[in-house]
Structure formats: structure tokens, C-alpha cells
């Protein structure tokens, strides 16, 4: 019994990475949903993307038996695209934050509520 638990802890496999990835994703979602500042929300989104990236890379590192290296590395290619999208998204989101600040003098998302009515 104890050996099983020790084995579970000391043999790092896909499970461990997936748990970390899910936790980072959940943490990012809390920050993205629960922060008032637009920049803070963006931090949460980046953390969520990072969690997804970790899952992709973990899957490509532990592929099913008999997978070719080229096929396994497609996970890395996906990560490259995720990074691209993340960079583009950050640039646009921060430009929008600056723009909103110019109009309203705040980046507090609770006070940017013109479209509520």
C-alpha cells in the first residue's frame, strides 16, 4: 500500500503534469473571472493558456505506444500556434484597455457598463 503511494509520488508521469495543468488552468480562470482590473483579467487569461500549453506538451511527451516522433511533436506545433495567438491577443487586449482608459479614465471592468442598458 505504502509502496503504491510512494510509487505514485516518485514516478512522474502524464497524470502529474495533467494535474498541474488543470490546476493552473483553474487558477487562471479564477483570476480571469474574479478580477476587476482589465490587466488583471488578462493575466488570468494568459495563465489559462499556459495551463493548456502544459497539457499539450505533456501529451506529446507521453504519446500512446508506437507513435512516431514526428507525430508526437505535432503537440509542439500546436503550442507554437497557441503562443502566436496569445501574443496577438495580449497586444489587442491591452490596446483596448488603453483605449477604454482614454474614454472612461478607468480600466475597472465593473465600471465599464455602458452596454448593460
Amino acid at each position: 500500500m505504502i509502496e503504491d503511494v510512494l510509487d505514485l509520488i516518485l514516478t512522474i508521469g502524464l497524470m502529474h503534469y495533467l494535474i498541474v495543468s488543470g490546476s493552473v488552468f483553474a487558477l487562471g480562470s479564477v483570476i480571469a473571472l474574479g478580477k476587476r482590473n482589465a490587466v488583471g483579467v488578462l493575466m488570468g487569461v494568459e495563465l489559462m493558456l499556459n495551463g493548456a500549453i502544459l497539457a499539450l506538451i505533456a501529451f506529446s511527451r507521453f504519446p500512446p505506444a508506437g507513435t512516431a516522433t514526428t507525430a508526437a511533436l505535432e503537440g509542439h506545433v500546436f503550442v507554437v500556434f497557441v503562443l502566436t495567438v496569445a501574443a496577438a491577443e495580449a497586444a489587442i487586449a491591452l490596446a483596448l484597455a488603453v483605449l477604454v482608459y482614454r474614454k472612461r479614465e478607468t480600466v475597472d471592468l465593473d465600471r465599464i457598463n455602458l452596454l448593460k442598458w
Binding site: 483553474a26 511527451r61 504519446p63 505506444a65
Partner: peptide, 20 residues
């Protein structure tokens, strides 16, 4: 919910891939 769901899936599934 998300974290525990992912953790449960990750723990419950048999990931028998050898790793390269």
C-alpha cells in the same frame, strides 16, 4: 470543479504510454 474534474480524469485513466 474544473481542477477536481481534471485531476480525477487524470488519476482515473490508465496512461500507460511509455514516454519518449
Amino acid at each position: 470543479g474544473i481542477a477536481s474534474f481534471v485531476a480525477f480524469i487524470a488519476w482515473d485513466t490508465d496512461w500507460s504510454g511509455p514516454g519518449t
